[in-house]
Design a protein around this nucleic acid. Structure first.
Length: 95
DNA sequence: AGCCTTTGACCAGCG
DNA sequence: TCGCTGGTCAAAGGC
């Protein structure tokens, strides 16, 4: 569970055949927070692709320390694009 | 007590 | 109409 500064709750995991990858579904612990996170990786690959969906309605939790939070900075802009983690992009110039 | 994690089953949309 | 997939929910156990 790669900590990105937010607390997530895993609510499901499935193997997507379309891409032959395992996908884990995470949701922000806060219900009022419609932020969602999906993590997918290939079987046998330590690299994982993290996909952020939605945005946190509350600011970011001061630190990785759970609890807190509540800052109304609303300064969190999550790119709906896919983000790579752990340098899983050895050759991003494939495109 | 609260929180977290894991699995199975269900539902909806599409061709 | 059927089958398939993707996405979500619920319950239980452990610390």
């Amino acid at each position: 569970m790669p900590e990105d500064g937010y607390q997530w709750k895993k609510y499901g995991q499935k193997f997507i055949k379309n891409i032959q990858k395992i996908r884990s579904y995470f949701r922000c612990r806060d219900r009022r927070c419609g932020a969602k996170k999906k993590v997918e990786w290939q079987p046998g690959d330590p690299s994982v692709r993290v996909v952020y969906d939605g945005a946190h309605l509350h600011g970011s939790p001061s630190s990785s320390n759970g609890g807190g939070g509540g800052q109304d900075g609303a300064a969190n802009r999550y790119d709906l694009s896919t983000q790579y983690f752990g340098g899983a992009a050895p050759t991003p110039q494939t495109r």
